[in-house]
Write a protein that binds this DNA or RNA. Structure first.
Lengths: 167, 167
DNA sequence: AGGGATGCCATGGGAATTCATGGAAATCAA
DNA sequence: TTGATTTCCATGAATTCCCATGGCATCCCT
C-alpha cells in the first residue's frame, strides 16, 4: 500500500536530539511498516548521504525495501552497485519512532546537516526530508525559485505531469 | 531472515588489536547466526583476500553459508571453484565477537590492511567492511569522486536504481 | 451555548541501561 | 620465561526508558 506523506512543518529539537515528527507522518510510517501492529513503534531508515547532501531523507520500510531489492538486482561487483550500497547501506541509519512520537537524531546526523534548535519536515512522496530550517529557507527555496524563473512566465508545472519519459 | 547491516562508524583499535564493532552490527550478526542464543557471542567470518585487497570483509554465518553452498555447486576441479575456495576458505578467518562487543584482529590481519589506531566500519548489504580510516578516505573516496566526475554534471546516482540490466 | 471531560499532541527532565574503551590479572604457547 | 592471547573488571559518555506537563481540539451533556 503506497501511502504518501503530505505536508510540511517545523519542530523543536531538544538537547538530546529528540524531535517530534508530524503526527500524520507517523500514520504513514505505521501503515508502511510490514511488521508494525497497533501499539508499537514504526521503523524507518534515515539516509543521510555524503558530504554534499545537507538534509536527511527518511524512508518507510516499504520504500527502503524496494530500493534494497533494486540494489540486489544489480550485478555483484559493479560500480553502480557499490555506489548505491555505500549510499543506502553505509550512509544510512535505521531507527524507530519512539512511544511519544519522536525521532532521536544522533549527534553525528545533527552535525551533518547542522541541525540545532529547529527542524523542518517536508513530505516527498514515499519519503520525507528533514532540514535545518535556515538551510531550507536560504538554500533550497532559493534554488527552486531560481529554477522556476528560467521557465516562461506563464508556464504551469502541471505540464510536467504528462511529459513522456524520453523527453 | 536476511537482515541487513546499515551505517558506518569509526572505532579505536587498541594495542592488542581489539576493536568495538558498532552495536547495531552486533544485532545483525546475532540474528544471522543460526547457533546463536541470547547471552552468547555471535560468530562471523572475516575474508581478507589476496594482496590487492586493502580492507576486511565480514560475513554473517548465514551469508558465508550461502557463499559456501554456491562454491560447492561448482564442478570439482574447475578453476572457478579453486579460486573461490582459495579466497573464501583459505584467505579468511573465522572468529566471534567477544562479550564486550569487540573483535580481536590478529596482527596478521591488521598488517594486511595497515590498521593502526582507528578502524572504519561500513555496511554493505549482508556484509560489512573494515578499513583503515585513512585508506578509505584517501583511496576509496578518491576513486568514487573520480568515477562520479565522469558522469554528466546533473547526474543523480539514484538513476541507477531504475536502470535496465541490459544497458 | 456553556462547560466540562477526554484524548492526542508536542515537549521536558531524570533515572536506568548500554556502549566504547582502558587496564590488570590469568592463561597459553613456544 | 617472555610475549601474546584471553578473561575479567572498571568507568565515563551516550542513549534509551519512563513518567510528567501544558496546549489544543473534539465530543458530549444539559
Amino acid at each position: 500500500m503506497a501511502r504518501r506523506f503530505r505536508g510540511e512543518s517545523h519542530h523543536k529539537v531538544d538537547s538530546k536530539g529528540r524531535v517530534s515528527i508530524p503526527a500524520s507522518f507517523r500514520r504513514v510510517l505505521e501503515a508502511s511498516d510490514p511488521n508494525w501492529k497497533s501499539g508499537d513503534t514504526p521503523e524507518l531508515v534515515i539516509v543521510y548521504g555524503d558530504h554534499r547532501r545537507n538534509y536527511l531523507e527518511c524512508y518507510t520500510m516499504e520504500a527502503i525495501e524496494e530500493v534494497d531489492e533494486k540494489i540486489d538486482a544489480l550485478p555483484r561487483g559493479s560500480m553502480e552497485r557499490k555506489m548505491l550500497q555505500r549510499l543506502f547501506h553505509g550512509q544510512s541509519f535505521p531507527t524507530t519512532v519512539d512511544e511519544t512520537g519522536r525521532l532521536v537524531l544522533p549527534a553525528k546526523l545533527r552535525q551533518k546537516i547542522n541541525l540545532e534548535n529547529e527542524a523542518f519536515f517536508i513530505a516527498a512522496g514515499d519519503t520525507f526530508q528533514i532540514w535545518k530550517t535556515e538551510t531550507y529557507e536560504e538554500e533550497e527555496l532559493a534554488k527552486t525559485e531560481e529554477w522556476l524563473d528560467e521557465l516562461p512566465d506563464d508556464f504551469d508545472p502541471l505540464a510536467f505531469l504528462d511529459k513522456r519519459p524520453e523527453d
